[in-house]
Nucleic acid binder design. Structure first.
Lengths: 225, 225
DNA sequence: ATAATTCCGTTGTTTTTACAACAAAAGGAG
DNA sequence: CTCCTTTTGTTGTAAAAACAACGGAATTAT
């Protein structure tokens, strides 16, 4: 078993809390540690989630199964990553269609959610920090999904692209942006076909709406009729 | 100005906290109250958000402006609704491309986020409840968006529909589900054309994949080749 | 009951996208 | 530099979706 404080210090959930402060903090949390073998289910479908999972070591997949049994992997978890927080967050919801399965020998820490967000009588600062970190994690996740959604709700590839570029432009504060994706990744992000997207990009460049070279794109204002 | 505790008691943020407990709770929060005229900007684009907004009375729109100045309304806020929480959550991010504008005379309460999530020395129960409520709100929002995303990332209308039905089926625990949308709303939710979707539904019924009548749908297992 | 309105399905046409296959360009390794 | 691999752009075709227009069913109002 790995050194717990050392492992936790690496997790965003414990950001800003030093290794030596983690042990006293743990004492005011209720937690459970368990080891899972490769292929073993960490959280089963339909299970009630009332704790936040944290990967100490190993690796696991969050996967979804639809009505017809088709499985798709939604996320890949490694050391430091947390899971199940949204389910615990929204009042101990049951997992529906979602499961978490180890694909390596994994050590998992389960932190009781109620205890985590209820500040102990001693009102320790680290506890507050923990809550704050959790909020930050969920908030950022929320922002990320929302952004992506704004692009995905657009009907055409062109609109999706423009939506994405516009967003990045706002974020980077310029009309000349560099994007963190290659073409295939961008296509995956926007849920469109790569080659079709490439073609659309060409057309947009042709029409003078945008310009680009590699990962650098320029948005042009003048589509004066 | 409206009676504050009375108004707050209606908000999900203060759920489980009775009117008479709200005043003492407010004393350990830092807040600011302001009135806005119709058309007045409540949160401006680019502004740094370090407090959670709560609509006491009136109405406001959250809207997005893209690079080319096209505005689209993202959400409609009424009494009890909160806004800006995700931005405050993820460490006081600046609004990018988003703004909140009153469309009625509105009273808005701004609750300082730091104070809100940092438990007071007296470690009052209501404060904990407030944090818990905030988490619940964000968590639920997160779940909702994630669900929708799962459908939107599918390429074809058919896949989107099946994805949605499958989700509902898991949630409702049956293969016979009733959905909270009419056709137009479902099409909007899935970001597809209504008539095209109707046609696709017909085809799916034809092929024996599903059956439906009005808002009641049945998913069938046997698509034995 | 009748009229009006909203909702839903259908069909034909146009536009867009996916798909496949390939060519060109870029990047890396030896 | 040359070979090999990966990435990106191009093109033609087939499939799918958007769009528009309409007719019938269902719902609501009168």
């Amino acid at each position: 078993m790995k050194n717990l404080p050392e492992a936790l210090a690496l997790s965003p959930l414990f950001e800003g809390i030093t290794e030596k402060d983690i042990l006293p903090l743990l004492s005011c949390l209720t937690f459970k540690e368990r080891e899972f073998s490769p292929g073993e289910t960490i959280l089963a479908e339909g299970e009630r989630v009332d704790s936040v999972g944290l990967v100490i070591s190993g690796g696991a997949h969050i996967s979804m199964n639809d009505f017809w049994g088709n499985r798709s992997i939604v996320a890949d978890l490694g050391p430091g990553d947390i899971f199940g927080e949204v389910y615990a967050l929204s009042g101990g919801t049951n997992l529906s269609g979602v499961e978490v399965v180890a694909y390596q020998s994994s050590e998992i820490l389960f932190l009781n959610f109620k205890r985590m967000i209820t500040v102990c009588s001693s009102a320790c600062d680290f506890h507050n920090r923990l809550i704050s970190n959790l909020l930050k994690i969920v908030g950022e996740k929320n922002l990320m999904i929302t952004e992506k959604m704004r692009c995905l709700t657009k009907r055409s590839t062109r609109e999706k692209l423009l939506s994405y570029f516009s967003l990045e432009s706002k974020k980077q504060g310029k009309n000349q942006i560099s994007i963190p994706f290659n073409r295939q990744e961008l296509a995956d992000y926007l849920s469109v076909d790569r080659s079709a997207m490439s073609a659309e990009l060409s057309r947009m460049k042709e029409e003078g709406i945008i310009d680009y070279r590699k990962n650098s794109f320029v948005l042009k204002l003048h589509h004066d009729q």
